[in-house]
Computed example of a mutant assay.
Amino acid sequence: MADQASEEDILLAKRIIGAAERHDVPALKVLLKEGSANVQDPTATVATSPLHAAVASCGKVEDGKEAGDDAIKTVELLLENGAIWNDLNKEDETPGCIALRFGQKLIYQIMVEAGIRAELLFSKMEALGLGDNDIEVEEEDEEASEEQPAVKKQKVSEKEAQAIQQAVEEKVLDDVSLDNKAYLRSQLRYKPGILLDESDNAVMMDWETQIMQRHAETICPKPGLKVMNVGHGMGIVDTAIQTHDPAEHHIIEAHPQVHQRLREQGWYNKPNVHIHEGRWQDVLPTLVEQGVVLDGIYYDTFAEDYKALKEFFSEYVIQLLAPDGKFGWYNGLGADRQICYDIYTKVAEIDLYEAGFDTTWEDIDVPSGLHGSKQWEGTRRPYWTIDIYRLPVNTFVT
């Protein structure tokens, strides 16, 4: 707010933003010794960060001529000094979104790489139980962690831990997709072409059919294989798998209403189909103990984050998948924004490689006009706004 900032602070913010907008690298280096790369001018009609200003001033690419060296050095300098890759302006755009809209491919790639570095570092810090006060990191990555704050170690008694867990499990959420257990307690609605949770989130939609059919082909390319799907939903991928005549078809599903639908549609009586009721976190350890080996595995759950997917492939797929088997997963990571999709797709590829998988990608066009179409009417928000689905096929590194 303007009345909360001194005149000196406002002046410094204006100077930093102005230098960024002019791509004045020497001046910016001096100014950043006094101020932050994330300042905003509280007196401006339209608030903008230095990074947004630097990218926007590049303008649209004309005749194939992209931003010059000064613009690139300005963006890199801001990122090195803590500019946030996924900061949003009033138009709900990140700096990378602006670069993409203007056709500034070099700037866009710099933003993607910055996002990948930040997300990988945050993931590593979280895995180590470290927060900002526990480790020294580059300012860029410290700021990036604000999007997803690291889990910090806390010492609590077993009784206190149980009380905290009970409070979490009993909480009432406006959006049940934010918590898997809340989602599993929620009421689902099957409507023509769509499955909704009680917060009006689209769990699955029939426009995904072509994608699901292709996933089924990749994990079950010939008859007689042993395959598993985690997350039945509308049954699109499981129906597709059945067309490939698997010898064993395991389905893991946790939601009681989906269990009822499975019964109504006769899935429990299908030959070679094995329904496992429960969360995969509870079912898979038993399958591992039983020595189950699968030729194909597919993962498409709801109300779980990327950390759950990473646990799934790094802890369980490596134990259940045959040496020549194939693992696929629904790649909807950040699919409501192109830069997020590009970043999280690459992060997943890196994490998969560290877990022992090679990943190949197949690009599939989503239905034209999907973004902004009437298909999203009645839903809380569109979960897909980009043009290409990048389908992953994962095999063990040889």
Score class of each variant (00 low, 15 high):
His276Tyr: 08
Leu284Asp: 02
Gln265Glu: 15
Leu262Gly: 06
Ala240Cys: 05
His259Gly: 07
Thr218Lys: 12
Asp245Thr: 12
Ile241Glu: 05
Lys226Arg: 14
Glu253Pro: 01
Asp206Ser: 13
His276Asp: 05
Tyr268Arg: 13
Gln187Gly: 06
Gly278Ser: 10
Asp179Val: 12
Pro246Trp: 00
Gly296Ser: 04
Asn229Tyr: 01
Val230Thr: 05
Ile297Arg: 03
Val292Gln: 07
Pro285Ile: 12
Val203Tyr: 03
Thr243His: 10
Asp197Leu: 04
Asp206His: 08
Met228Trp: 02
Val292Asp: 00
Glu304Tyr: 08
Val176Gln: 04
Glu198Thr: 10
His255Cys: 02
His215Thr: 05
Tyr190Cys: 06
Ser186Phe: 15
Asp197Thr: 08
Pro192Asp: 12
Arg263Ile: 10
Ile236His: 08
Glu208Arg: 06
Arg189Gly: 04
Arg189Cys: 09
Ala247Cys: 10
Gly193Phe: 01
Leu184Thr: 06
Gly296Ala: 05
Asn201Tyr: 11
Ser199Leu: 11
Ile194Met: 12
Trp280Phe: 14
Gln242Tyr: 08
Pro256Met: 13
Pro271Ala: 14
Ser186Asp: 15
Leu188Cys: 10
Asp200Lys: 15
Val283Arg: 06
Glu170Pro: 03
Arg189Glu: 11
Val292His: 05
Thr218Ser: 10
Ile241Pro: 01
Leu173Pro: 02
Gly231Leu: 06
Gln187Trp: 07
Thr301Phe: 02
His232Pro: 00
Gly231Glu: 02
Cys220Ile: 01
Arg261Tyr: 06
Asn229Pro: 01
Pro256Phe: 14
Arg185Asn: 14
Asp197Gly: 07
Met212Asp: 00
Ala247Thr: 10
Leu225Ala: 08
Leu225Cys: 07
Glu304Thr: 10
Phe302Tyr: 14
Leu195Thr: 02
Val292Tyr: 01
Asp305Cys: 14
Tyr306Met: 15
Lys171Ala: 14
Gly278Trp: 00
Gln260Arg: 13
